[in-house]
Simulated scan of single mutants.
Amino acid sequence: MKAKEIQDLIDFIAKSGLNKVNIETEEFKISVKRDPDQKVKYVKDNSSSAPAQPHAPAPAAPAPQPGPTLVPAPAAPAAASEESRYITIKAPMIGTFYRSSSPEAPLFVNVGDEVKKGQVICIIEAMKLFNEIESEVSGKIVKVLVDNASPVEYDQPLFLVDPS
Results as ranks from 00 to 15, higher is better:
residue 5 E to W: 07
residue 5 E to T: 14
residue 6 I to R: 03
residue 7 Q to H: 10
residue 7 Q to V: 01
residue 7 Q to P: 02
residue 8 D to Y: 09
residue 9 L to A: 15
residue 9 L to D: 09
residue 9 L to S: 12
residue 9 L to E: 10
residue 10 I to V: 12
residue 11 D to T: 09
residue 11 D to S: 11
residue 11 D to L: 05
residue 12 F to H: 08
residue 13 I to Q: 08
residue 14 A to N: 14
residue 14 A to Y: 08
residue 15 K to E: 14
residue 15 K to M: 05
residue 16 S to W: 00
residue 16 S to N: 01
residue 16 S to Y: 00
residue 17 G to Q: 00
residue 17 G to R: 01
residue 17 G to E: 03
residue 18 L to I: 08
residue 18 L to A: 11
residue 18 L to T: 03
residue 18 L to K: 02
residue 19 N to S: 14
residue 19 N to L: 07
residue 20 K to D: 01
residue 20 K to T: 00
residue 20 K to M: 01
residue 20 K to P: 02
residue 21 V to W: 01
residue 21 V to R: 00
residue 23 I to N: 06
residue 24 E to K: 14
residue 24 E to P: 05
residue 24 E to Y: 09
residue 25 T to Q: 05
residue 25 T to K: 11
residue 25 T to S: 10
residue 26 E to R: 14
residue 26 E to F: 06
residue 27 E to W: 04
residue 27 E to S: 14
residue 27 E to H: 11
residue 27 E to M: 10
residue 28 F to I: 08
residue 28 F to Y: 15
residue 28 F to R: 08
residue 29 K to Y: 11
residue 29 K to R: 08
residue 31 S to Q: 15
residue 33 K to T: 15
residue 33 K to M: 14
residue 33 K to G: 13
residue 33 K to F: 11
residue 34 R to A: 12
residue 35 D to E: 14
residue 35 D to G: 14
residue 36 P to W: 06
residue 37 D to G: 04
residue 37 D to F: 06
residue 39 K to D: 12
residue 40 V to G: 05
residue 40 V to E: 00
residue 40 V to W: 04
residue 40 V to A: 01
residue 41 K to S: 11
residue 41 K to D: 13
residue 41 K to V: 12
residue 42 Y to N: 04
residue 42 Y to K: 02
residue 42 Y to R: 05
residue 43 V to L: 10
residue 43 V to P: 05
residue 43 V to K: 03
residue 43 V to I: 14
residue 44 K to T: 09
residue 44 K to P: 07
residue 45 D to C: 07
residue 45 D to V: 07
residue 45 D to L: 09
residue 45 D to G: 10
